[in-house]
Amino acid sequence: MISAEAGSRRVDPAPEPAEGSLLLDDQLCFALYAASRAVTARYRPLLDELGLTYPQYLVMLVLWEQDAISVRELGAALQLESSTLSPLLKRLEANGLLHRERRADDERSVAIRLSEEGARLRDRAATVPVSIGDAMGLTPEQDALTKQLLRLLTANVSAD
């Protein structure tokens, strides 16, 4: 059972919704939507200081973890289509944070590499996860369980 208490905030557990309920508060999709908007809004001022949008930040997270990655691998990691990813990469490249280059062994494949400036940005971004974690106010156990449940939900909804 998940304790809804975190820090000084407390959220009372909602009663079990009736099957087929059309009440807004009974919709998991709305709870996910509201949480996503709130979390993304909390990121905005932190990322503005870095000169990044939230989707650009996600790209940088992948590159800070694994530099020299193909566009295909990056898209898979972020669950984004190349048509969505390409404008993000162009903007990050124009801002001097990464380089895109055709791979010598496969001209059809484009490798993404951090620039020196992109690598240096990592140090400035190190405070972002801590600030967001503090804002979320979850215990380490709640954080781990929330991620586990969201990954399960994503896998279940994405399954054929």
Score class of each variant (00 low, 15 high):
Met1Glu: 13
Ile2Thr: 07
Ser3Gln: 09
Ser3Ala: 05
Ser3Asp: 08
Ala4Lys: 03
Glu5Ser: 14
Glu5Phe: 04
Gly7Arg: 03
Gly7Trp: 08
Ser8His: 10
Ser8Glu: 14
Ser8Phe: 09
Arg9Phe: 12
Asp12Ile: 05
Pro13Ile: 06
Pro15Thr: 13
Pro15Met: 10
Pro15Val: 13
Glu16Trp: 08
Pro17Glu: 08
Ala18His: 07
Glu19Met: 14
Leu22Ile: 12
Leu23Cys: 12
Leu24Ala: 14
Asp25Gly: 15
Asp25Asn: 13
Asp26Glu: 11
Asp26Pro: 08
Asp26Lys: 06
Gln27Trp: 12
Tyr33Ser: 15
Tyr33Ala: 14
Ala34Met: 11
Ala35Val: 05
Ala35Ile: 06
Thr40Pro: 00
Ala41Ile: 06
Tyr43Asn: 09
Tyr43Asp: 03
Pro45Asn: 00
Asp48Cys: 08
Glu49Val: 10
Leu50Asn: 01
Tyr54Ser: 09
Tyr54Glu: 05
Pro55Val: 01
Gln56Asn: 10
Leu58Pro: 03
Met60Trp: 04
Met60Phe: 02
Val62Glu: 03
Trp64Asp: 01
Ile69Met: 14
Ser70His: 01
Ser70Trp: 00
Val71Ala: 05
Val71Asn: 00
Val71Lys: 02
Glu73Lys: 13
Glu73Met: 12
Glu73Ala: 14
Leu74Asp: 01
Leu74Cys: 02
Gly75Ala: 04
Gly75Ser: 11
Ala76Tyr: 03
Ala76Gly: 06
Ala77Gly: 02
Gln79Val: 06
Leu80Cys: 03
Leu80Val: 03
Glu81Val: 05
Leu85Trp: 04
Ser86Lys: 13
Ser86Ile: 12
Ser86Ala: 15
Leu88Met: 05
Leu89Gly: 03
Lys90Tyr: 05
Arg91Met: 10
Arg91Pro: 04
Leu92Thr: 03
Glu93Tyr: 06
Ala94Thr: 15
Leu97Phe: 09
Leu97Cys: 01
Leu98Glu: 02
Leu98His: 03
Glu101Cys: 12
Arg102Met: 03
Ala104Ile: 13
Ala104Ser: 12
Ala104His: 03
Asp105Val: 15
Asp106Pro: 02
Asp106Glu: 11
Asp106Gln: 04
Glu107Gln: 10
Glu107Trp: 09
Arg108Phe: 07
Val110Tyr: 00
Arg113Thr: 15
Arg113Met: 06
Glu116Asp: 14
Glu117Ala: 15
Gly118Leu: 02
Gly118Trp: 00
Ala119Ser: 05
Arg120Glu: 12
Arg120Cys: 09
Leu121Tyr: 01
Arg122Pro: 03
Arg122Phe: 13
Ala126Met: 10
Thr127Met: 11
Val128Met: 06
Pro129His: 04
Pro129Arg: 04
Ser131Tyr: 01
Ile132Phe: 12
Gly133Val: 07
Gly133Glu: 07
Ala135Asn: 01
Met136Gln: 09
Met136Phe: 10
Gly137Pro: 05
Gly137Lys: 02
Thr139Val: 09
Pro140Asp: 06
Gln142Phe: 06
Gln142Asp: 10
Ala144Gly: 10
Thr146Ser: 12
Thr146Trp: 05
Leu149Ile: 11
Leu153Ser: 13
Leu153Arg: 13
Leu153Ile: 01
Thr154Glu: 12
Ala155Tyr: 02
Ala155Leu: 10
Asn156Thr: 14
Val157Ile: 09
Ser158Leu: 13
Ala159Tyr: 13
Asp160Arg: 05
